[in-house]
Design a binder for these strands. Structure first.
Lengths: 214, 214
DNA sequence: TTCCGCTCGATTGCATGCAATCCTTGTCAC
DNA sequence: GTGACAAGGATTGCATGCAATCGAGCGGAA
């Protein structure tokens, strides 16, 4: 839809999610237009789309910035994610085909290899694989409304911090959760997969914002 | 944000949700522009915003239409709503102030008065009050991500059918649920409110799409 | 009669011009 | 020295022009 705008939105999304454009950075229309080789019109449309996804914030007459999230907002986001993503995994498990299971297995193993202590230099491959891993489950769940609801919410976690604040132990736990989730999926055990996803999210939340004591 | 575009989006939203523009109707840019007295640019922006909310569907080079939902999609939407809206109500109950409780009470009573059998001519006031009733709870829940996730999903139910397919019994049940929800909120009993909201949604789902037998 | 292809009107998509708004910075008064 | 204020530059918001695409309607061939 609206090819140039869609492509611009996709480019920006990638750059934001991969950290090329920092959180909170200003997004000037003219600069983006010249950089992406289109006019300001599709840029503006891309920005409104990304704003609707929650990836950028739009202020009237003051331009767009990459979204930022307070600790309170992150807490709300995790609360929502905890309600939706384990459910999505449970729906996904019986619908996963052999090739998807293989891809999930490969992703989990590669994250584990890359994330081993001692080689902690560049985490972007893990971030990317993790995004794909979670995205595969959400996509396989097969319900568009659920996917739409999860989109904004998973973006936040990706942008906010890309595993950089994980302690080595928390990171390892997280990577082993992926492996276990693949085992559960292979076994066709939706309850197991749902449970491990829930633990996975609690682990992530604890390392990102600590344990809410409310 | 982007005043003209925002205003255009709001106008269109109202017209779609109130049924002035029918589900599936075509939304030509030129026609909307002349009708709302702005140029096509803010119209286009409003359409992309509404598309992101799920209220309209955009096809490349083929314009926009008011969204429609298949039975399967409605089923998915209710599944999601069942996971989010009872939770929202539980969050909202301890945060409701006296004036909000009064407004909820007034809304519930007015719906009950209007919906009494024998005067079933025009249901739009009920639709409007119902929208406000649910919106108040969602707003009072106080978490933006949850509100955003629920927005698209509640829109669907409003647009799809505005109580017109309710049997008299189902409609009465629904209206009494509202009254009971106010009672639960007044009592400060989040569990009660959550439970009645869940029943409320099951009742709505049954009248809209029947009971899924999967 | 039916199906394929073509032309033309209508509509969308993108670029650009202009007006309005905001932010910066320099100046002046206190 | 500090604050308020005003002018200028820069940026966004909206309108409009033009090219590209779509689809309806017509004509011709099998």
């Amino acid at each position: 839809m609206r090819p140039a705008a869609e492509q611009a939105a996709q480019s920006l999304r990638e750059e934001i999610l991969s950290g090329v454009i920092a959180s909170g950075a200003r997004l000037g229309e003219a600069e983006l237009a010249s950089r992406l080789r289109v006019s300001r019109t599709p840029i503006r449309e891309a920005l409104t789309r990304l704003a609707a996804e929650g990836l950028v914030e739009l202020q009237p007459n003051r331009g767009a910035r990459v979204a930022t999230w307070s600790t309170a907002e992150l807490r709300d986001i995790f609360e929502l994610r905890l309600r939706l993503e384990p459910y999505a995994v449970r729906l996904a498990v019986p619908r996963l085909g052999p090739e998807q299971l293989d891809e999930l297995h490969e992703l989990a193993e590669s994250m584990l290899r890359t994330g081993r202590p001692g080689r902690r230099q560049d985490l972007t491959p893990i971030v990317e694989a993790n995004r794909r891993f979670h995205g595969l489950f959400i996509e396989a769940a097969g319900t568009a409304p659920l996917a739409a609801a999860l989109r904004g919410v998973t973006h936040a976690a990706v942008v906010h911090q890309n595993f950089h604040d994980y302690t080595p132990e928390a990171l390892l736990r997280s990577l082993h959760h992926h492996v276990e989730m693949v085992a559960a999926a292979r076994a066709g055990d939706g309850d197991w997969a749902e449970a491990i996803m829930r633990a996975h999210l609690y682990n992530a939340r604890a390392t990102m914002i600590g344990v809410p004591r409310s």
